[in-house]
């Protein structure tokens, strides 16, 4: 697995190829209808990278959990809760408060999965509903009145030297994750546990700590994405995370990470997130109705997986 992030493996190659195809189709469309090549302009591409950063952050955390062979369905309301807490606290403590929220949620998820051995899918689903309940009580079911702090807005929508800050935030966290996956024991442990948890346990790995740590990383990533999103739209609102769960899982899987765990690269998730955002953006520019968008979206995921994500032929 070492240097895996430097290799261009099959999924990444196909995903990159598909990104080019999307851009060509989009450009052909704009050339015919408007006579411009707006999809190839640096502005548009940078803007897409900025939008992809929010999804990418969620996908990065989700990938950690999926590498373990688990899944975190509490991401939508982790994201929303962190955003709401951060905007409600406000001031200098906004971002630390949001991060702390993410940390606490990750701990609950991790403890439930590691000690109670409840399947992560159902435990995180329950946590998601509880968080939703807490926020509904807190806000009375409406968007909270509080606004995001200037620093959140700076991180979410400003840019330095033309590069969006959100992208820089994503890349900074990505660098930490890549270092952790490839150069730290924890990274090796995650891959080991994803392949066979009992073997990892027998080799003396403290599997519970790794499980909890990974869920915390996932929740932290989601809460950072939540605070950036709150900064982007100047406030937090109900259901702001609902649109991020399934695309995040899709981005991780399109990037070649095995949904059963044990195999995957960060570069894949990176390309996967950009692919999903570009696809959504090009389809909406082409004024594709929601019905067609959903169908194409589903077909793309299945099509890409049929090309390179097939399991081994089972003969025993």
């Amino acid at each position: 697995m070492s240097f895996a992030f430097l290799q261009i493996d099959k999924p990444i190659k196909y995903a990159l190829g598909f990104i080019v195809v999307i851009l060509i189709i989009g450009t052909a469309y704009t050339l015919v209808t408007q006579g411009t090549m707006s999809f190839l302009s640096p502005n548009y591409l940078l803007q897409q990278l900025q939008v992809a950063s929010y999804l990418g952050l969620v996908a990065t955390g989700m990938m950690m959990v999926i590498l373990l062979g688990h899944i975190d369905l509490s991401v939508p309301w982790t994201l929303t809760t962190a955003a709401m807490v951060a905007t409600a606290v406000g001031g200098d403590m906004a971002i630390p408060a949001g991060l702390l929220t993410g940390l606490a949620i990750g701990l609950v998820n991790g403890l439930g999965v590691a000690f109670l051995r409840v399947p992560s899918m159902i435990f995180t689903l329950g946590v998601n509903t509880v968080l939703q309940g807490l926020m509904v009580i807190q806000t009375g079911g409406f968007s909270p009145q509080s606004h995001s702090t200037p620093i959140m807005e700076f991180l979410a929508s400003d840019s330095i030297l033309g590069i969006p800050m959100a992208l820089l935030v994503w890349l900074a966290i990505a660098a930490l994750i890549i270092f952790m996956l490839n150069r730290m024991p924890m990274g090796r442990y995650i891959f080991a546990m994803g392949n066979r948890e009992s073997a990892a346990y027998l080799s003396g790995i403290n599997t519970r700590v790794i499980l909890i740590g990974t869920f915390v990383i996932c929740s932290l990533c989601a809460s950072i994405a939540g605070m950036l999103l709150a900064g982007y739209s100047a406030k937090a609102y109900q259901g702001m995370g609902d649109l991020y769960l399934l695309p995040a899982i899709a981005a991780v899987v399109i990037g070649g990470t095995n949904i059963l765990g044990g195999k995957g690269t960060f570069a894949g998730t990176f390309v996967g997130a950009i692919l999903i955002v570009l696809l959504q953006s090009v389809l909406s520019v082409m004024q594709m109705p929601e019905a067609g968008r959903q169908v194409i979206y589903g077909c793309v995921i299945i099509g890409m997986l049929l090309v390179y994500g097939r399991g081994d032929k089972k003969e025993s």
């Binding site: 019905a291 169908v295 979206y297 589903g298 077909c299 995921i301 299945i302 997986l305 399991g311």
Partner: peptide, 17 residues
């Protein structure tokens, strides 16, 4: 030979479409 969870996630989008 794909994982059910991800296949049904994608076909779910198609059916909703």
């Amino acid at each position: 030979r794909l994982q059910p969870i991800i296949v049904t996630l994608a076909t779910g989008a198609i059916f909703i479409g």
